[in-house]
Design a protein around this nucleic acid. Sequence first.
RNA 1: GCGGGCGUGGCGGAAUGGCAGACGCGCCGGGUUUAGGUCCCGGUGGGGAAACUCGUGGAGGUUCAAAUCCUCUCGCCCGCACCA
Length: 843
Amino acid sequence: MTRQYDPHAIEEKWQANWEAAGLYSVTEDASKPKKYVLEMFPYPSGDIHMGHVRNYSIGDVVARFSTMRGMSVLHPIGWDAFGLPAENAAIKSNSHPATWTYANIEKQTSSFKRMGFSYDWSRKVVTSDEDYYRWGQWIFIKFWERGLVERKSSPVNWCPSCETVLANEQVLSDGTCWRCKSVVEKRELEQYFLKITEYAQELLDDLDELPGWPDRVKAMQANWIGRSEGAEVDFTLCDEAGEPTDRTITVFTTRPDTLFGCSFFLLAPEHALVAEITRGTEYASAVDEIVALAAKESSIDRSATDKIKRGAFTGRFVVNPVNGEKVPIWVSDYVLMEYGTGAVMAVPSGDQRDFDFARKYGLPIPPVVIADDDPLLAELAGVRESVLREVPWDVSFAGDGVMVQSGEFTGMRGGKASEGMKAVTEWLLERGQGRFSINFRLRDWLISRQRYWGNPIPAIHCPSCGLVPVPEDQLPVVLPTDVDVTKGETLADHPEFYETTCPVCGGAARRETDTMDTFTCSSWYYLRYCDARNDAAIWDTDKTDYWMPVDQYIGGIEHAILHLLYSRFFTKVFRDMGLVNFAEPFTNLLTQGMVKLDGATMSKSRGNVVAPEAIIAKYGADTLRAYILFMAPPDKDLEWSNEGLDGMWRFLGRAWRYITETADEAAGAVAGASDPASKLLRRERHRVVGKVTEDIERFQFNTALSAMMELLNTAHDYRRDVPVGQRDNALERDIAETLTLLLAPYVPHMAEEIWREAFGRSGSVHSEPWPEWDPAQAASDEVEYAVQVNGKVRDRMTIDVSASEDVVREAALVLPKIIEHTEGKTVRKVLVVPGKLVSIVVG
RNA sequence: GCGGGCGUGGCGGAAUGGCAGACGCGCCGGGUUUAGGUCCCGGUGGGGAAACUCGUGGAGGUUCAAAUCCUCUCGCCCGCACCA
């Protein structure tokens, strides 16, 4: 036992001891409540940084605390190891992605161990290990069997720098690649998609089943899924002579109630009909110009909202089903092929973009839904004819209002989800010219990547059988190691990999050379932890029944959509497959804030990194752990500063001295002392245990530490003020032990050293039960009341805690300062807030 | 434009509608020590000698009582965005 607090003498000793004792390995234990505490697994991009320290320190406190509270705690770790950075690093250092990846995993492993995190290392998963990714391939096959895999040609996002396609979720809102920030291009390519859209409604609905998630994350997901309620409307296409044909073009609209105000019709430049109806006509050249422009422009330029919309008339018309009116078809780049049907009914009086377009090209703007306070309403209220008058109308109005110029619907309420919207759709429905419809913004998940360092897609292209899955008994498709990315190679450069035979007909065939998006690997790792070493099945459902869902998930907000949405999708499919018995993987989610330096996120490329290693070398891991949790509430961004480290170091040193000195003292000369100082200290002990417990449960790690500091301060004053011989040694001993237990989740090494060496206990402090507390003992027998007159505190009084409200009221009214402030005035009201204050109202 | 969030001392941050600024950093003063960046003691929102008074981005409101609830407003951050 060292006399001074010396983390360097104790931390590695206990790390080795815990590992040897298997302290943190768990198995299912039906006798205890379970708790699954999970931090998002790291990407092995180098050594760990302060963001990792924060993330994993939070999780470690929750895990250790839960164990002490009597729960069976699963707290695993692993690595999200496939991905492009490994290839880039390999090219840079002229090596192999696996070399770089596994070296970084080693580095991070030793850093995690050096931090003293309580992981069950026996459950480690590494997504680039064959015994992990083989099950990823198995999942792909199962999804395929369920019709959730599709290979299709469509306009996809292509990152020219990463030389691969990207999912929609991986393109940032400024049109750049999430990883390298290059401007993403659109290319028409044949790719693999997972049909996440089939679960769009459920993914949206079940957000309501997640009260333990931050509203922000749920809002972002809801926004991303983007459900719009409306209708499909069929417009009849006219021929060159303007006569109706038997073909229809369908549009999606959220405002069928404005259908009478449709004065033109729009097609996206990519729409197949555009070329068909304009080819060889006098309109072709103007239309082609728009089409060419749209194809050339980057998605950023095209989506610039301040740009004036360009368009061209096609020479053709469609018939508006509600009034038989013929409206011209235009082409414009503000209509997107990806959303809805790629065709839009334009209602300039109800939509700003349509309005701007109508103004520019001199198209009519007939009002159909008018605000209740619009003077135009009186003038048009009785007009039942459809779309007769175009009145001066210098704004578009998208709100709720009254329908005018809308035939039999005139006078109804119009607006989103309005009576008019329903009535018009029902009218269309009866005539077979429209129907209620729901549209989602969410697109299917593009998962194929033209890169080497990923999980090979288990598919085979057979010239006669088409695309066929690799049979289950031939899995895994092993990722070959001899691909040289420094020469720009991918699997497509290795015939020995792709030359194969068709599993159906046995003929020569070509193996798929694309790999899967890394997000497929991270969409199910939390399930594999439940049964990580199973080589006969992806997992045993009994085990996921016991451990899942994750009770507390902790990670960065950057995964609000990507990883968290994909994982929810996978879980729902697993449920439908009967592999799991729940629909949501993560019951509670804590999104921790970023660790910044000088206002910017720490990153190697910026060169503003504070290495945890340097802090550990000076102060030890315990001080770092406690300090980063003390700095700010976990969900807030945190500006790193070394300034307060000394404060945490001093606190731990003080605690060390207080506890070890107390432990050394002969026990029990005085016990159950009832002098004021002893009573105060006893109360503090119970109050603080209660507060620390509640604070950790609410993730207020900073205030929990503050409370421990308060207890130490009170205990410190006690030793200073009460002479030796009069001190209650039993109480002090209890304070010392309690403080050690409270500190244990934060500073596991220091607490363990004290527990075993100073107190001479044989078991680990981390297996001890959490201290009990008694709210009754936390209460004082006297309380101080603040006495207010007209809302201002004028005096204070100390009174017996059992005093009745009447007694308190009377006592307050006779205080000299209160008499001074109430003299000559009428006391109108006296309120007593028990244990807190008295409020006197005079007038 | 739509959605979410945040504004409290010199700093990080505390406050189930009930005494604003807990706890810590920093700073000021004092003590122990050969010395110390150790340890210990005291002080620390503004104004005022004090009684008091002003203070949680701003303006209103509800309430005996508002950092907290409501309305408007200003500033900042984040997500989505020609989504029909």
